[in-house]
């Protein structure tokens, strides 16, 4: 929801970043305020995941220019774990499997890391168990998944649900969803989208990265940005998605129509 005069949560100005010496982000600018839901759409390889990794501090990506502030502070002053504790959460496009570590232990360690950072009470196994059981309901997850190793042997849909479970638990100020919809059947998509919708509040924000318009039927964005070649090329309201669906990305990404195969 767009709220007059709400606080700026994320401000990105002219951001450029490279990986392996190749510039991927080339002057990206974006502002997200409290209460808003933003979507970034764009063709494969346009740099959407790179943007999410730069925001969360992945060591493989080097920022080469621009500024990013999160809740008013310089984001690049923060280590990846402190960005998480300050309230940035990334739902991974490809969540990792961690053999031998139970999902329950992992969730508790993550929760307590943030509590400790905030000077709040850490929960012991018993109290945490109560909390997590309530949270499971948000993504309708079977408690049996708590005892399994993190994401190990989970289906694509189960992994994404597990990501949203973590988001529900950590209550981020900015939730970034990287292709959370890809590979989900329609029931799983509804559950995941419904989970995210339960988590949106006037004091937090969501940035969805998606390839398809389908997700936007379930999580309705306030703004849609189209990304191409490492920068935002167009920004519009939710209607933009429909137009993109009909006319393809070329409609916005290229000033002149191109022949197939010319790129």
């Amino acid at each position: 929801m767009i709220i007059e005069n709400s606080d700026v949560i994320l401000s990105v100005k002219d951001l450029s970043a490279e990986v392996d010496g190749i510039e991927i982000l080339k002057g990206l600018s974006l502002e997200i305020k409290a209460g808003e839901i933003h979507a970034i759409m764009g063709p494969n390889g346009s740099g959407k995941s790179t943007f999410s990794k730069v925001l969360t501090g992945h060591p493989a990506y080097t920022v080469t220019g621009g500024e990013v502030t999160f809740k008013g502070q310089n984001l690049f002053d923060l280590e990846p774990q402190d960005r998480a504790r300050e309230g940035i959460f990334l739902s991974f496009q490809y969540p990792l499997e961690i053999p031998g570590v139970s999902n329950l232990d992992f969730l508790r360690v993550a929760y307590n890391s943030k509590q400790k950072y905030k000077g709040l009470e850490e929960l012991d196994a018993f109290d945490f168990d109560d909390l997590i059981r309530e949270t499971l309901d948000i993504v309708k997850m079977n408690p049996a998944f708590l005892d399994r190793s993190v994401n190990e042997g989970f289906s694509g849909g189960e992994k994404k649900r597990n990501e949203i479970l973590q988001m529900a638990l950590l209550e981020p100020t900015l939730g970034i969803l990287d292709e959370t919809d890809s590979g989900l059947d329609i029931d799983a998509l509804r559950i995941v989208a419904n989970g995210v919708n339960q988590l949106t509040r006037p004091d937090n924000a969501v940035l969805m990265i998606t390839h398809y318009q389908r997700l936007l039927d379930y999580i309705v964005p306030d703004y849609i940005h189209v990304m191409e070649g490492g920068r935002i090329v167009t920004t519009g309201g939710k209607e933009l998605a429909l137009e993109l669906e009909e006319r393809g990305y070329e409609w916005v990404t290229d000033k002149e129509p191109v022949e197939v195969g010319a790129r």
């Binding site: 501090g57 991974f92 943030k114």
Partner: peptide, 11 residues
């Protein structure tokens, strides 16, 4: 793997 855990708040 380390980054995944860091992104969840673990040092």
């Amino acid at each position: 793997e380390i980054f995944y855990l860091q992104s969840r708040g673990l040092d």
